[in-house]
């Protein structure tokens, strides 16, 4: 066990924990977007930053990925942390103005109209879909394509993937609804019709494809939403 100070309190933590884990264990709420317990931390959205105080000054680190170290002092909600989170959310709102989760975060933090327009794409590039497809499902059907502002989530050659097993984990894990079930199902049916299609099991549960019962449930859900 190691000891550290978080928001003025001395706490104990298991060695090897991340700052985010320590915070949550101690009832401290830190917002996240690209973090998921079932996946390796990514450190991309920067919403979970906390202030790390060292002898040489302080700096912001992503709590989802920064290790808890013996004797460190951390502040999870200081002014510098708040300013950073507000700017992150403002920028996300400027790029994904219609994403509900971003609108909610903005409202919570008092972020109003972004001062610049950066686009209107529900995908915030948190990478959860890609990472889940790789780490949990093992299908590797989609990936992060291009670089920088042009970065997107796409299947190979932007056509569709026959590595996709239609489990729809990407749809569930997406925080903004940018990944749509219709696209996953459409991709599946295209490949089911092609003669070279070969079904693959999920790495975690071993199921080979979207079970017929589940598919019916999803289709019903979609029909409901359309009404």
């Amino acid at each position: 066990m190691i000891t550290l100070t978080i928001d003025g309190r001395q706490v104990e933590a298991l060695e090897g924990s991340t700052m985010l884990e320590v915070a949550r264990e101690n009832g401290i709420d830190i917002p996240t977007l690209c973090f998921h317990e079932a996946l390796e931390p990514y450190g991309g959205c920067r919403l979970c930053v906390v202030e790390l105080l060292t002898s040489r000054g302080s700096r912001l680190v992503a709590s989802c990925v920064h290790p808890a170290e013996e004797g460190v002092e951390v502040r999870t909600d200081s002014e510098i942390v708040q300013k950073s989170r507000r700017m992150t959310v403002e920028l996300l709102l400027a790029a994904a103005p219609n994403a509900k989760v971003i609108q909610e975060l903005a409202a919570e933090m008092g972020v109003e109209e972004p001062r610049v327009k950066l686009g209107d794409n529900d995908c915030i590039l948190c990478g959860l879909c890609v990472r889940a497809c790789k780490e949990i499902v093992g299908a590797n059907a989609i990936s992060l394509v291009n670089r920088g502002f042009a970065k997107e989530v796409k299947p190979p050659f932007e056509i569709g993937s026959n590595a996709c097993i239609g489990c729809a984990t990407c749809v569930f894990i997406c925080p903004t609804g940018a990944v749509r079930l219709e696209d996953v199902l459409a991709n599946r049916s295209v490949h089911e019709r092609e003669s070279d299609f070969e079904s693959r099991p999920c790495k975690l549960c071993g199921d080979h494809y979207l079970a017929a019962e589940l598919r019916q449930d999803y289709e019903a859900l979609l029909a409901e939403e359309a009404v």
Partner: peptide
Amino acid sequence: VPLSQTYSVATF
């Protein structure tokens, strides 16, 4: 290597 990784590298 998964095709998606190759494609990702090719576009980066």
